[in-house]
């Protein structure tokens, strides 16, 4: 279970990206965070695994205080939390297999991993992860030779290597076409059914309706909505996205 209490983030330049955010996520939820560009979605997700240092507030992961954890504890917590990104964030010049294996770094022997030596079981695990996302045949290609959809699947395979209990997905489909978007989200849905908690930021409401079990809406760093996807009606939508907003559907793109 993840508990966020009074989380605030102020960037050094004075931008208040998050303002007193509190919520809880139970195990097995598929929580979607929505909000306009700049509303603080990325900041929120990165505070959870401390890629960004929160300014104040607390985050508890299974009753461990993430915000107060020492660097080595942070690494131990991070390895249970997978993360995928809008820009995939693969190491472009490395092979697909190396990219996937790097998901295992939190568990691997530090010295052997620095030499690039991986135990056979990790390699098999990586190949299984690639098989699972349907691109086992690309294992030895350079990551940047893959299409966007394939790269995001490598990103998922990398996260799978962590045996994650929680998966953070920051706009995982914003760079993909609608068909690919569904296929990627279906992988996440499947993981979710296997018990992985998912926190995912999304832009398209039809995707939210289709995959979310719960939705949080952010506006200018403030939580303005917390409820079921079905509760987002026109009024709510305007509240989150502003008066002029028109609903855009991924399917209509």
């Amino acid at each position: 279970m993840l508990r966020v209490e009074h989380l605030t983030k102020v960037y050094p330049n004075g931008t208040v990206a998050l303002r007193d955010i509190s919520f809880e996520v139970s195990d097995g939820e598929f929580l979607v965070v929505i909000g306009l560009s700049g509303s603080g979605k990325s900041t929120l997700l990165r505070c959870i695994n401390r890629l960004i240092e929160p300014t104040s507030g607390k985050i508890y992961w299974n009753d461990i205080d993430i915000t107060n954890a020492s660097p080595s504890e942070v690494r131990r917590i991070r390895r249970q939390i997978g993360m995928i990104f809008q820009q995939f964030n693969l190491v472009k010049r490395s092979s697909v297999l190396t990219n996937v294996l790097s998901g295992r770094l939190g568990y691997a022997n530090p010295w052997l991993s620095l030499l690039g030596v991986w135990p056979a079981e990790d390699r098999q695990k990586a190949l299984r992860a690639l098989e699972r996302v349907g691109i086992a045949d690309k294992a030895n290609q350079r990551a940047d030779t893959l299409s966007g959809g394939q790269q995001q699947r490598v990103g998922i395979a990398r996260a799978l290597m962590q045996d994650p209990r929680l998966l953070l997905a920051d706009e995982p489909v914003a760079s993909l076409d609608p068909v690919l978007a569904h296929s990627i989200l279906q992988y996440l849905e499947q993981l979710n059914k296997e018990g992985v908690t998912i926190i995912c930021s999304l832009h398209f409401l039809d995707l939210v309706h289709r995959y979310a079990t719960r939705v949080i809406g952010l506006k200018d760093g403030v939580k303005v909505f917390d409820g079921l996807p079905t509760e987002i009606d026109r009024a709510r939508f305007k509240e989150i996205y502003g008066e002029e907003a028109q609903e855009v559907r991924a399917a209509s793109l």
Partner: peptide, 25 residues
């Protein structure tokens, strides 16, 4: 900086981040 962020997110230590995200670049 993307890959650096991604490798750090896996729980890698600083040396591992350099080895897997910086050096290949």
């Amino acid at each position: 900086p993307g890959p650096i962020e991604a490798i750090r997110a896996t729980g890698a230590n600083n040396l591992q981040v350099i080895r897997y995200a910086v050096i290949p670049q």
